[in-house]
Amino acid sequence: MEQAPRTVMTADEMTWTLTRMAHEILERNHGSAGVILLGILTRGAPLAARLAEIAAEQGHTLPVGNLDITMYRDDLRAHPTRPVGRTVLPGPVDDAVVVLVDDVLYSGRTVQAALHALADLGRPRAIQLAALVDRGLRELPIQADVVGRQVPTARDERVRVAVREIDGEDLVTIERTSL
């Protein structure tokens, strides 16, 4: 039985959260020198762009790119053929501090795939992870450096992040899905 989705983050709260996250990224890197943001497709991409906008308001330029990890997934064979998105780098990743941006941190498998993808693109000086929502339930030893909101969840719940660039609104909801 499906329950009505419960709101975890409103549009305003998402803006405040992203603002704090952008500031944390600048803080932990002592500014923006040598730092690039890579949004993990699909919803990490607009979030990375917004973090860069917020940093720009502080006078800091964070170059933004997108990372598609489809071909690096460990569950490619468990699903019908997945469409592949476009990886766009704002510059060489060699010796840069790459901040991976994703909407939801869950099992950690997406991040693992992103680390493999990144290794094929060059050798960053450091890789950090920023996630809007950390819902726990990790299956790998992976943690985020910058977290928007910790949301404890159960495995049969689904966290849905809507962003206005793709979904027309900013909203994070959680719902129970029964099989």
């Binding site: 690096y72 592949v84 990886t87 493999h116 693109l121």
Partner: peptide, 18 residues
């Protein structure tokens, strides 16, 4: 997808694990 694969040919590591 062929368009994306074109880009892969100009990368330092040309291999994808898919």
């Amino acid at each position: 997808l062929a368009e994306e694969m074109h880009d892969v040919q100009s990368r330092p590591v040309k291999k994808l694990p898919a």
